[in-house]
Nucleic acid binder design. Structure first.
Lengths: 199, 199
DNA sequence: GCAAAAGTGTTTAAACTACACCCATGT
DNA sequence: ACATGGGTGTAGTTTAAACACTTTTGC
């Protein structure tokens, strides 16, 4: 997401702003996001802190960047500001200051995380098909995955539960919707993920 | 590592200090570490930023925490300050402010990272035996690993090169020393790690 | 019937697990 | 001799990878 701001050299910028003296970092990020987009009640995860001396002109500014995982279609952007909108990751042009660097860092982080934590499941709406999930993984990782193998691997993990519902009005066999098995997910988070690749 | 500071309620603290206005974050961390321990030329990795409003009494303090991987025996601590020393992770007592939280975060981070990046290799001296490496992994992860399987897995990765040298003066068959295959390691970092566990 | 995606099966190779076993060296 | 760790072998099982195949649905 990005915004236009006349102060920002006419370029786009990531949503952001100043933290208040008495605010927690995550609260500040959440407030700023909400002010700009209307989105609230989102779990924000700290990405990284950017502190190059010359990253901002005139004064020393340190940015603590946060990110969240949402499915774009489940959030309407309610905002007074113009030019606030969703954008495709590949089509983001030059941003102000070091915001491209921040975005790149976020993407790298996401690509790494997605490999060993089921965060992909947080990115989709409540109900989704296995192809939705596969498309998501292929998009984030930039690879092609085998349908059958992906399906088996996902289902074997026990993190998905089938809904009673199926697709309707599609020009092919209707896919069953799945949803996150929250208790299995929490269990996994608590007890840690299996030791897979040493060295 | 921790230090005693009379201002710190008599408890121990992680090494740290204040950043100067014109300093990069990593440089500041490096300088502070050097001032306290004499260690220099260490690659510091940003851990996380801690910003709870009430984490420090009296004023708002935000800490950007960094960490590094070193083998304790390869660095002599040269310092004027007293009570600066290495400590075993399990035996760290109550620290000042939220420093226990910071330490716990670092350990969690390390345990996660070590599973899918060969950072364990950075923790050991130039030359090391396979048992050294196995002990390191067992310590960090808190699990027991099979000797033969670990050895095969490590060697198959191609990240280790055998030295011509062997152990001497040990009351058992001498182990061959290994060293990091730097080019293979760099290759792996550049081209990314294999996609292992989806979902 | 055809296109398109759902969903299943199969085959082969690779990897993991859990052991048992022999080898070298200092005391 | 024996304790200690170095180092190798192997059987059984599990996963992964690649690909072919059958099923359902709208047009």
């Amino acid at each position: 997401m990005r915004q236009r701001d006349p102060r920002h050299e006419g370029k786009w910028a990531l949503p952001g702003g100043w933290i208040r003296y008495d605010e927690h970092l995550r609260s500040a990020a959440s407030r700023l996001l909400n002010e700009l987009t209307g989105i609230s009640d989102l779990y924000l995860e700290q990405l990284k802190t950017f502190g190059r001396v010359d990253r901002f002109p005139g004064e020393r500014v340190i940015t603590v960047a946060y990110y969240a995982l949402v499915s774009a279609d489940s959030y309407q952007l309610v905002t007074q500001e113009e030019d606030v909108n969703w954008h495709t990751i590949g089509e983001v042009s030059e941003l102000v200051y070091d915001h491209n660097e921040i975005l790149a860092e976020a993407l790298t982080h996401l690509r790494r995380e997605v490999r060993y934590r089921p965060i992909g499941l947080k990115l989709l709406p409540q109900k989704f098909t296995l192809l939705d999930l596969q498309n998501l993984y292929e998009a984030v990782l930039g690879v092609r995955l085998d349908k059958g193998n992906f399906r088996r691997k996902v289902l074997r993990s026990g993190l998905l539960l089938p809904c009673d519902e199926k697709q309707t009005g599609v020009a092919h066999r209707a896919a069953t919707f799945y949803r996150l098995n929250q208790s299995a997910y929490d269990e996994l988070v608590d007890h840690g993920f299996p030791v897979q690749s040493l060295v």
